[in-house]
Design a binder for these strands. Structure first.
Lengths: 111, 111
DNA sequence: CTCATTGTCAACCATTCGGTTGAATATCGT
DNA sequence: ACGATATTCAACCGAATGGTTGACAATGAG
């Protein structure tokens, strides 16, 4: 799963990781701070953070024995770009289809 | 993975499924039409489509023995909403932080 | 120096995932 | 009624995933 898009979507498919992202949107935090709310070992949370980091959604900076985790908003934006592109494409197609249907209706009304 | 957000992100974490979405953004298609370009069995593609359908990203309508697959742009939009929300939240935080730093620099310049 | 704190690494386990093959079902065209 | 076409269902396989426990490394504090 080398592709960054693969990794990003996969990373966000886990509710714990989405929750971590939501938390990090409010500000940087250490691993144990992030792990505190969860009923799971700190190792598990550390793994989740690694998954987010591998996807580029998050970066770590070592401050002494702790690591500050930082949300990379740019990586999030690259995700929305992909999704939005195809949603928009489909929308345009629907609109064109509507126009055709309206025209058809018009020509049938006035023969 | 009952959560629709879980299912949607997971569905799009696979490159084949993202490709199917890209194709479907151009218009509805049958299973075999969608399967044609891939070097994999039609059953595999059918499975991928089931995953997309389970996530609500796609719907099937049975026309005789074929099924027409249709992209649900609304479901895509729900995804972007989630991502965009937290990207925006982080952005706002950065901006506030910048303001604080600028103010600090100012007060240090003119004591 | 010692020790508690913070975090990672490694091995393991159960479950899920992406793919295959093979058989079954449903519908169209003749 | 029959055969071809389109799709699904089911069982199976290897790899990846989310979690655990236990040991290790690095740093700060007393």
């Amino acid at each position: 799963m080398t592709d960054p898009l693969d990794a990003s979507f996969a990373a966000l498919s886990d509710p714990t990781r989405r929750d971590l992202v939501a938390r990090l949107a409010l500000g940087d935090a250490t691993v144990s701070e992030l792990a505190a709310p969860y009923d799971m070992t700190i190792q598990a949370v550390s793994k989740h953070l690694n998954v987010l980091a591998a996807a580029g959604l998050v970066t770590k900076s070592a401050q002494a024995q702790r690591r500050l985790i930082h949300l990379e908003a740019d990586a999030l934006r690259r995700l929305t770009d992909w999704v939005q592109h195809y949603a928009q494409l489909a929308d345009q197609r629907y609109r064109r289809l509507d126009e055709v249907l309206v025209q058809l209706a018009d020509t049938e009304e006035s023969p």
